[in-house]
Write a protein that binds this DNA or RNA. Structure first.
Lengths: 266, 266
DNA sequence: TCAATAGTGTCTTTCAGACAGTATATA
DNA sequence: TATATACTGTCTGAAAGACACTATTGA
């Protein structure tokens, strides 16, 4: 059940050396699906969680809003045996998601947090052809959000309030409602035990700015004092550091902080 | 970037009604990957977390252990326009995972917990052809585990101790080490805030049996009294109920309980 | 009676939510 | 000085870890 030998029978394959086997291997001719990385791109603007949506100009779901997405670039195996093994199979799935993110937002690669969400593979979810959608979610800092190209007319991308969208009952294209709901659920859960909130504030931020991000994501208020205590714990644990300078917004001068991004340990 | 119109130009598509568009739609001829549901099937036997592995009989990775898996059945669109829309695109991705699970274990569908884990899509992860692996993990009750066919010779499946496997440094086929590690990490995290432990005990169980499952999954011990308190809270919250009967294992008679599976709310 | 398991009570720490009040800036 | 924002201290309750002890059964 788990082995596939293409046009080689199992017995033949088992008696050959690996390099020989691979050189002789032919892809089975069964139909394959398209694989599409779709993106749920979030930011927080005006203490409100927003998602980047495009308006579909063609069928199907013409006129509906949709999540931006694209297709995974796959390369076929070259005919000559000389190329195998180690031939170029195309781009990594994650690289495709990063590429799409950069194309859709116009932001440089690596400027946003990106993580895989879930893979959606119901038959018929795209009426044109069989498509497996690997959904990713991305977090864009509010300082970068206004730079996102809001309307090169190929696909006019807009920041849409998630709450307003849910309240309106507007239906998205394909199964994108389901994808969006799952993404919101994911970040609401994840913000409690991982530092994703720091990818939704500017590089330096005040306590209240961080609190407002929590409130926007969770869709509820936090007691400022209780939040301050959580903040002080993070400071004590060296998760955040005091940054130079300060900020003022109508009252007392506020300390600004910086997230102490943990170094990748090798 | 996000729209695909196959062999129809964008402008043509935009001026047609949806049914017409779909009838005229032709699949673009770009290469596609295979999509493979791979399974990380866990059980707990002798207070030890086990995973079901097969031994590969053919290239590549001949002789290595691997996770069981298969391929998603995809149907191509019929040529005649009469069939569109609503033609059969093949099986749902999740259905493919359930099917594979039933095939690999010999257990009836629906007898195990199954959940999507992550999608692995590095180029070159399968040297034969481009494969996107959608990994799922499954939980098999210890009462069912011995029924799993341990050696129909196509792919001799075995319950392997996860800890022993990690300690041995044995390398699995493909990127299955990475998949297994992520699956273990997932259930270790998830057991703390969701009722997956109840899918790793018999239908009725004692407090200590449930504790042993936690210990096996988390790879650490729990203070029996502290665990008992957690258990009493679940009883108070009606998460579990006292079941008829009792069990005895060499000492005092133990009460048996049943998980009060929450009904799916419509 | 002994061994083995089942089950309970209490202390301590940690953390979150909910409360009122002080400090410092602009206008 | 008035007002808006930044920041602090304390009480309470929920839950987890770590401790010693009692209860019931089979051998």
């Amino acid at each position: 059940m788990s082995d596939v030998s293409g046009k080689l029978s199992h017995a033949e394959g088992a008696d050959m050396a690996e390099a020989e086997f691979l050189a002789a291997y032919k892809v089975r001719e069964y139909p394959r699906p398209s694989v599409a990385p779709d993106l749920v791109i979030f930011t927080v603007l005006d203490t409100d969680l927003k998602v980047l949506l495009i308006r579909r100009k063609g069928h199907p779901f013409r006129g509906f809003r949709a999540l931006p997405g694209g297709f995974l670039n796959v390369k076929e195996r070259p005919e000559g045996e000389s190329h195998a093994p180690g031939w170029d199979q195309g781009e990594d799935l994650e690289a495709a998601a990063h590429r799409e993110l950069a194309e859709e937002t116009g932001l440089p690669e690596g400027s946003c947090y990106l993580e895989q969400l879930y893979t959606f593979g119901k038959a018929g979810r795209d009426p044109r052809t069989r498509v497996i959608s690997v959904a990713y979610y991305a977090l864009v800092r509010p300082t970068l959000a206004p730079l996102v190209v809001a309307g090169d007319d190929a696909d006019a991308a807009d920041w849409v309030s998630v709450q307003a969208l849910f309240d309106s009952g507007e239906k998205l294209a394909f199964d994108h409602d389901e994808i969006l709901r799952m993404a919101v659920q994911r970040i609401r859960g994840k913000i409690d035990y991982s530092p994703i909130a720091f990818d939704l504030v500017p590089d330096t931020f005040t306590v209240n700015e961080l609190r407002e991000v929590y409130e926007a994501v969770k869709g509820r208020t936090y007691d400022p004092k209780t939040f301050h205590r959580k903040f002080r714990r993070m400071l004590a644990d060296n998760v955040i550091q005091v940054a130079p300078g300060s900020r003022i917004t109508g009252g007392r001068r506020a300390t600004v902080y910086r997230f102490n991004r943990p170094q990748a340990q090798p």
